[in-house]
Every structure is written in structure tokens, then in C-alpha cells.
Design a protein around this nucleic acid. Structure first.
Lengths: 234, 234
DNA sequence: CCAAAAGTGTTACCTTTACACCCATGC
DNA sequence: GCATGGGTGTAAAGGTAACACTTTTGG
């Protein structure tokens, strides 16, 4: 029987940075940690990787358990592998960021899992290196969102251009010129204008759009320039 | 004593996709695997992560051991975490891509470690999922190289514009217009023209340039547009 | 009618692309 | 002097940014 002699073995966890958008601010889904150490402190949604599952599977499972949702946009972005990042025992964490339509998130589960949305700039202190993870995830989200139409994952099926613009402004902490933004978005071919208007935030009303899913899938990998004065900072 | 009960533990390895450039083609540094299973088959440079080192440390160590080089450009890009990717025992692999100036690589070590450069398109079959890793690393390199001036890491201190262009063409499998390429590169402010010329490949000779390291460091994170018809495909 | 938000138009400017052209020199 | 690779010039087309302007409608 071949074996890798006496190499050390470690625990492996996944942690998910779950972004949501309520129409105004970018939010983060956090849970109260249910095990020692640091029990009852705020933490990212995470869990250990089981023997029969891939890290991707583990992340999907953890998200399903905490939000009840399937088919969430999920992207592995970094491994945190410092020997002492968990004080109890060496644990590597594979970090994923997730984008979910906050409206799909059933509020009921909130109570079950002690999960809660926080505006990203008003979040509590997190355990271990989770604060760093959030900062890294945010940079990565900005980076990716400037080049790929990823932010649609955060919006409901029907959305308006002003909503979309607010989302881009929230993610990137910047003001964007409406005229240029609309032209740019319309020119991507990703938007399908609906007849219906959203009158909740103005008298004139803003047309609803939906995503052209076929084009979204086919063009997803292309590099767009969705931001003015593109200068990211990853 | 707090502990994480009976969660499973796994081996953790790092694997490095090491790119080099000889002035003509993009190359990959491979080694003959020295342990069972698949002993003597070609493999990426890798090793297990020791108890006292981070994954980054482990990657640096593995590279140092196999190339004798310090200060290599190294970037973690993905974790491979399928349960059965190693047939002997579950092992997660943290993949890094590395860029080295092939001229700095001391040929002598080649013999010591059975490492060898292969043109990227004429490489042998690799063990496990290493073929996938190479494909992924190459995509990632293209992506990053289109937006950040990362390819200078592959060049010697002095280089010419035609060399730089050949490198971009090799990485991206495309022909690039010389005039436009030169103008774009010169406009970045990253190049310092030297008085000396390289006459090895033409009668007229091509001016040597060196990298403006200060500008390289300060502007590294900015998003350039270093390729024509930018349309990547990560 | 007016305020306020949605959305369009206009223009100056810059970048990109394609390609023609000039330059230097060893043979 | 001419072939060869190095390097510059140019003009058309397209994209970007700034901002003025029009539209709609509830109060």
C-alpha cells in the first residue's frame, strides 16, 4: 500500500462572503458562530469540508443550509493558509464570494440560523481573519464587476436602470454619470426593456428591464468596460 | 481543551505552474515525480505544506528548491479540492503560477532536480489534474497580462520592444501590430530606453529598454489595456 | 405650474486600428 | 543597392466624459 508517509494533515473549511443588495446599500450576510472558540461572535457563513465533497460542493451546501437557496452565484477567490489563523487547530479556509438576490432570501431562515444582513460599511467585528476576507472579497467583487456583468446576480428579475446604477455606485463607492451609464448598459445588449414601469421612486417612473440570459451566458467571459475612468486597485 | 471534534483532516499540497520565456516561445518548467504513485512521470513542481509554514511559504520554498531562485513572481490562483484528485489519499492542492526570467534559471540545477523546460504547446502528459491546472494557469496568465504589466517578470533586465512583442504574442497566441504595440508600451511610462542596441536579430538593431521599477510598482494595480481587441475568455 | 427623477442629445477629446511609410545596415 | 527587421506617421472610426437639455407626472 502506497502512502504519503508522515505528512501533516489539516482541517479544511470553506467561508462564504455573501453579498446582497436591497436597492440602496450593499449588504453582507453574517451569522453568530455556534461553536467554541469565539462562540456567539459574528462570523462569515462557513463550515468544514466533508470527506466526500469537493470544496465547491461544501460551499454550495453551506449556502443552501444558511439561506435555503440553490443556484447561487459562487466563486472561489482565495485560500487562507497561515498556520495560526485558527487558534485551536490548523485550518485552511477556502474563501468564496457569493451574490444573491436579497429578495429571494427568505426572512424566516434568519431566525433559524441567526443569520443577519449588515450594510457592508456598518458590519460588526468578525472572528479570526474574516475581516480580511471581507476586504479581499470586496476588492475582488469590484474588480470582477468592472469587467464582467456579474452584478446582475444581485438584482431581482425585474429591475430599473436607476437601480442598476445605484448598485454600481454602492459596489464601487463612486458617483456615476447617468447618461453615460445608461448608454453603456444599453449598448451591451444584456438588457431587455419591459413595458412596465416602476413608479415607486419617481413620478415619471422608470422602465423595468430584465436580463437577456442567453447573451449574459454567452458574453459573460468577455471583458466589458462597465465603469467610467476604469482604474481598479486589486 | 476546545477542539473541533472529529472533522476529517486532509493533506495539503502546493503546485506551481512555472512560466518562462526564451525569446521565442512560452515555456513551462516540469519535473519528474520522485515518489509513488506515478513515479517518473512528468509533473508540476510541488510539495506538501509543512506544519509551520503558510501555503505561500510552501510555494516559495518549493520554487527555491527547484530553481535556486528567490524573489520569483508568484500568485495563488486556485485550489483544487475534489475528493479523489489524488488516488492515494485526499489531498488539496493550492495552485500558484510563477513567472521567472529563464536566463536566471541556472541550468545546473536542471540535472540535480530533473527539472526541464518544455514549450507550452509541446509538453508531455502530466499526472493527476495537472493538465487542467496548466490550462487554467494559462488562461489566468492571459487575463492578468492583458490588464497588468505582469509579463515583464519573464524578461531579462534589458529587453527590446520586438522581444516584448514576441512575448505578448506567445502568451496570447495572436499577431499584434508593431506600430500600435510600440506606441501603447511607450505610453505606459514603464519603459526606459537605453543607448545600447541589440543587433542579434537585425542589421538595424533594436534599442534595449529597461523597466521603470518605481512606476511598475506604483501602477501595477491599475488596469491597463495592453492588448488590441481586448476580449479575454477566462 | 413646478419639482424631481428619468432619460436623451451634443460635443470635445482621446484611444484604437489599419496600414503606409521611412530608417539603418550587413551583405 | 537591396532585403530585412526596426520604428514612426497618419487618418478614419469609434469610444468616453461632461453636461445641457427634454420628458413625464404627482402634488
Amino acid at each position: 500500500m502506497i502512502e504519503y508517509s508522515s505528512q501533516p494533515h489539516y482541517l479544511v473549511a470553506v467561508d462564504c462572503i455573501v453579498f446582497g443588495f436591497d436597492g440602496e446599500t450593499l449588504k453582507l450576510l453574517l451569522v453568530k458562530r455556534s461553536l467554541e472558540p469565539e462562540i456567539n461572535k459574528w462570523s462569515l457563513i462557513g463550515g468544514f469540508v466533508g470527506a466526500e465533497e469537493s470544496t465547491d460542493d461544501a460551499a454550495i451546501k453551506v449556502l443552501k443550509k444558511n439561506t435555503g437557496l440553490d443556484g447561487i452565484y459562487l466563486e472561489q477567490f482565495k485560500v487562507y493558509g497561515k498556520p495560526d489563523r485558527d487558534p485551536i487547530e490548523r485550518t485552511l479556509s477556502v474563501a468564496y464570494f457569493a451574490l444573491i438576490d436579497i429578495k429571494k432570501y427568505s426572512q424566516q431562515l434568519n431566525a433559524d440560523y441567526h443569520a443577519e444582513w449588515f450594510p457592508i460599511n456598518e458590519r460588526p467585528e468578525l472572528i479570526f481573519d474574516h475581516n480580511t476576507m471581507v476586504a479581499d472579497a470586496r476588492k475582488r467583487l469590484r474588480y470582477k464587476a468592472a469587467l464582467h456583468p456579474i452584478l446582475f446576480e444581485l438584482l431581482p428579475k425585474k429591475f430599473t436602470l436607476p437601480q442598476l446604477q445605484t448598485l454600481f455606485e454602492a459596489v464601487n463607492d463612486m458617483k456615476i454619470d447617468t447618461g453615460n451609464f445608461n448608454r453603456k448598459m444599453n449598448s451591451t445588449g444584456l438588457l431587455v426593456k419591459l413595458d412596465e414601469k416602476d413608479k415607486s421612486s419617481s413620478k415619471k417612473g422608470a422602465y423595468y428591464f430584465k436580463l437577456n440570459h442567453k447573451k449574459y451566458r454567452s458574453d459573460f467571459h468577455l471583458v466589458f468596460n462597465l465603469l467610467p475612468n476604469l482604474s481598479l486597485d486589486l
